[in-house]
């Protein structure tokens, strides 16, 4: 009963097993690669070879559909986990110098006294993306736009690195022991609202999204209303507008105030 004798065409089991297996494979392959493509109503096959290729899943080059008129207010930034590019060795130092002009609004330590967003410890990807959007005009603000216009790619990367490097100091916002509102923790599934916390801190973070804890309530609220009205559109494929549009004014108020009241050291995902 040596195994070699089984693995030989002289063995009846071998002949039968290989024959049946091959037979089933050939039959199903004929069905899948020839019969099926010709029977598919939405597939226009250009001959047998094309039928086989389509059924095998040979990749087709993406269709280049002409886009509609470009909207200047949509972002041009590509957000991935590799954003921004690896900083230069002197990025933080250079960023610190550049950041002096930002201190009036965003505070000398990146903590604002003027209802502008706190930037200390903010994710580099989030800062970089917003600077880029201000520069291209996808996001417009009377104060920010002129500053951003003159920033180079390197400037924006260095600013992002510098602010990301700063420690997340507690802001000037009172720390309160309030339970998180439902909209932050649970969202509203039937309105298609995921929890705020699943992208902006408290539950998890999504690349490109800022963390919001300790941010001024007035700022967060204004941005949510801007997203809801469509005034602000630099979120990729409407990901924020989808949410803000369906939030009630009360929910916007609650979420903004709760985030503002949270100590900015509460970071769950870092």
């Amino acid at each position: 009963m040596s195994e070699d004798s089984v693995l030989s065409p002289r063995n009846a089991w071998f002949r039968r097993a290989v024959g049946v297996t091959a037979g089933i494979f050939v039959a199903t392959a004929l069905g899948g690669f020839v019969l099926l493509p010709y029977a598919q109503p939405d597939l226009k096959v250009a001959g047998l070879w094309d039928a086989i290729c389509s059924a095998a899943g040979v990749v087709r080059t993406p269709s280049a559909q002409a886009p509609a008129e470009p909207d200047a207010r949509l972002t041009k930034v590509v957000v991935t986990s590799a954003l921004p590019a690896t900083p230069a060795p002197d990025a933080i130092g250079r960023g610190a110098t550049l950041a002096q002009q930002c201190a009036i609004c965003h505070g000398p330590t990146g903590v604002s006294r003027a209802d502008s967003p706190n930037l200390a410890g903010q994710y580099a990807a989030a800062i970089y993306k917003q600077l880029m959007d201000f520069k291209t005009g996808a996001r417009v603000n009377a104060v920010m736009t002129p500053f951003a216009k003159d920033l180079s790619e390197r400037d924006m990367q260095d600013l992002a690195s510098y602010y990301a490097f700063l420690p997340r100091l507690p802001g000037y916002h009172p720390v309160q022991e309030k339970p998180a509102p439902r909209i932050v923790i649970n969202g509203a599934p039937m309105r298609g609202i995921a929890p705020c916390g699943s992208c902006h801190g408290a539950l998890d973070n999504k690349t490109g999204s800022p963390w919001l804890e300790g941010q001024p309530a007035a700022y967060v609220k204004a941005q949510l209303f801007a997203f809801a009205s469509g005034e602000r559109r630099n979120d990729i494929s409407q990901q924020m507008r989808n949410i803000a549009r369906r939030m009630t004014p009360e929910e916007i108020q609650l979420a903004s105030e709760w985030y503002a009241s949270q100590p900015s050291t509460t970071i769950h995902t870092n």
Binding site: I24, A27, T28, G31, G32, L36, S54, A55, A56, G57
Partner: peptide, 14 residues
Amino acid sequence: PQVGAGFKFIHSAF
């Protein structure tokens, strides 16, 4: 979307 229909058919039969 990344698998061809023919292979889906074969796997279904098996």
